[in-house]
Design a protein around this nucleic acid. Structure first.
Lengths: 223, 223
DNA sequence: ATGTACCAATCATCCTACAAATTTGGAGTG
DNA sequence: CACTCCAAATTTGTAGGATGATTGGTACAT
């Protein structure tokens, strides 16, 4: 008899089902989920059981309830929510430090593993940076720049690295923006990383490493 | 109109209070928490409310309930629990890759910021490694080695970096152990990082970087 | 000593009822 | 017709009670 605690509580079963619905996109971010009464019938559980499941997901950061209005999907990953909460309470410099460390590793891995598609995406991001720079559109430039960095991390082909980087970057967006906006001698050209793209394209790991080290040092000076 | 929903639900209030009790160590890991009836009175809420709060923490990984027995404290950080869940599902190599990247950064920061106390702790860990090596006690050696690495990361004086590293290392323990045990030409001396300690002691950042690069490459070869 | 039967404590699930917040639709007014 | 205001319907929040299931221990018979 190897039934090793096969019993999974009803609440956990409902939680798992709802997690799947969210992860698979059947319930998308921002969507309003069906009201408790409907879900009770759909899952075949009582209101208390259902409510405990919903609240577990609320506390995990996946859902958000509003009395009188309904329940909406807020995030699709509990790691994301936990990271956001943690980073809210963390020191900005510490977070940037870790983020830059991840970025450095990503640059090296990207140089090693990038696909043709990665190159295309990186190229497109740089193009957007240049366009914004010519128009002097600072806000657009920052967005395009961040997209470039994210695409580089994607090219590293490591899901954990990518998730950590993105979950760390998103809550920092306004801080990063402020840092770049406050620099009154800001030089667009310095921020356009076409040399880095070349190094990644030619799978020149040393070149990529050197370039990343250089711009990270440049960035740290501004802090 | 900045009325930003000042109302915090009772459940959330109870959750917060219990989180604090856990974080502050009033409820330590492994402890059995009071039964529902007592907590109901203590927090002054109904059974359902209390149960929803407990289940939120169960799902977050901080508590664990056993029907008929009671509820115990399982972990003290929701980031830890979320990371563990994520890493369970992740690829071992990807996780090791990120972990080594964090370690590399930590070595450089440690060389910059280490305190005297850090040096003492690192020294103590190396001593334990040596003792275990002389006795040929492989298991003890691995534990001491991991402690050395953790102490190095602590010396980097960055809480986020430390938390990520430790939450990544703990679930990997058995894998790391297997990798080291499987190496039949295992050389204790190669694994004793006294040169690294010297570099950190003398705040020789380049030296620390080179040493870490070397042993990380060595480690990667074994995979 | 060992195994069985029983009991108490505790969590799991379900139910009903009411409160509070929000949305919606309709009555009333200009 | 357009607008305001209010009441009803909808939806989540909180409370309390009832019953079942699981666990851990105890007492008893063998």
């Amino acid at each position: 008899m190897l039934k090793k605690t096969n019993r999974i509580s009803l609440v956990d079963q409902v939680v798992s089902q709802m997690e799947n619905l969210i992860e698979n996109g059947h319930w998308s971010i921002g969507d309003k989920v069906p009201p408790e009464m409907e879900l009770m019938e759909e899952f075949g559980v009582s209101r208390n059981t259902l409510r405990e499941a919903i609240h577990a997901l609320v506390h995990a950061g996946l859902l958000e309830t509003k009395q009188g209005s309904g329940t909406i999907v807020r995030s699709s990953s509990s790691l994301e929510a936990a990271m956001h909460r943690y980073i809210e309470k963390s020191d900005l410099l510490e977070t940037l430090e870790v983020r830059l460390a991840l970025e450095k590793e990503a640059a090296q891995l990207a140089a090693k593993r990038r696909s043709e598609e990665d190159i295309n995406k990186l190229h497109a991001s740089i193009k957007q940076c240049q366009d914004a720079a010519e128009r002097g559109a600072m806000e657009d430039f920052i967005k395009a720049d961040i997209t470039f960095h994210k695409n580089m991390v994607r090219a590293a082909n490591n899901k954990l690295l990518q998730d950590l980087y993105e979950h760390m970057t998103d809550p920092l967006y306004s801080s990063i923006r402020d840092i770049m906006l406050m620099d009154n001698q800001f030089d667009y050209n310095k921020e356009i990383h076409s040399e880095l793209l070349d190094a990644i394209r030619h799978q020149d790991i040393d070149g990529a490493t050197k370039y990343v080290d250089a711009y990270i040092n440049e960035f740290k000076k501004r802090l």
